[in-house]
């Protein structure tokens, strides 16, 4: 299957710090691909580079066939993004923010799509509340909705389940699996190895900016090992601290 994400020696320096170091990776279309690694391993920086939010220092990255360094806006037009820490703009309400996203993306039927998300993630009662006054979990729901409002063929998600309660976590996992079944691709970073093992069709492990390992849960099952075990062996730390 064709690769929707392809990186060659992708590198990012922040001053003297090498955040991502010569990462070469291919993510096939239709995958639910997990990027795993301890804190500071370069997961968020990789997602920021792939989504055209920060410029690579060296190497190349192509997303849906578009070079992220030369056309980051073109990449962002085609994909959905949920950054790790960004929150929606403070002084729009939740409903206004989704209409704003729909206007900027020139979407038809924004209101219907927004209604679906308000109902699906059960935060319709917050639609008229200013984003700055929303709880962290509700802001995350809103960021989730904006990323999928235009039904992108590829979504890049940094820590999709953080801030969600167990019920919403379950709903979101089901949504992601179903979304991929419809022919789309999800590329996500997560700390929760059990989740990656449960829903991902492929994974890569980063450590100190370097790509240590790629694989699939099927391959793991064949060896009788579990992802936390593999992760611990590669990274050399207690996976609970990852």
């Amino acid at each position: 299957m064709a690769a929707v994400i392809e990186t060659r020696d992708l590198t990012k320096h922040y001053g003297e710090t090498v955040a991502v170091n010569n990462v070469s990776l291919e993510v096939p279309a239709g995958a639910l691909y997990g990027l795993l690694g301890p804190n500071g391993s370069g997961k968020s920086t990789t997602i920021r580079m792939l989504s055209g939010q920060t410029r690579p220092t060296a190497g190349t990255a192509s997303v849906l066939g578009i070079d992220v360094a030369t056309d980051p806006v073109g990449v962002r037009r085609r994909i959905g993004i949920i950054p790790e820490q960004e929150t929606p703009p403070s002084f729009l309400t939740a409903a206004e923010y989704l209409r704003f996203v729909g206007s900027v993306r020139a979407l038809e039927g924004t209101d219907e799509a927004a209604d679906w998300w308000f109902e699906f993630l059960d935060f319709g009662d917050k639609r008229d509340v200013l984003c700055k006054d929303l709880s962290r979990g509700t802001r995350q729901k809103l960021m989730f909705a904006q990323a999928f409002l235009h039904r992108p063929e590829l979504a890049l998600i940094d820590e999709p389940l953080v801030n969600f309660d167990p019920i919403v976590q379950h709903q979101v996992k089901e949504f992601l699996v179903d979304y991929v079944r419809q022919g789309n691709t999800i590329f996500l970073s997560t700390h929760i190895l059990e989740v990656a093992e449960e829903i991902c069709t492929g994974y890569a492990i980063l450590h100190r900016g370097r790509l240590l390992h790629t694989g699939t849960p099927d391959e793991l099952r064949e060896t009788g090992r579990h992802l936390p075990e593999v992760f611990l062996a590669l990274v050399g730390r207690d996976p609970a601290h990852a």
Binding site: Q53, I81, E86, P89
Partner: peptide
């Protein structure tokens, strides 16, 4: 007044 981070999710430069 603005925070530019959220624009990183949108197709604007």
């Amino acid at each position: 007044f603005d925070t530019f981070g959220p624009y990183g999710c949108l197709p604007v430069g």
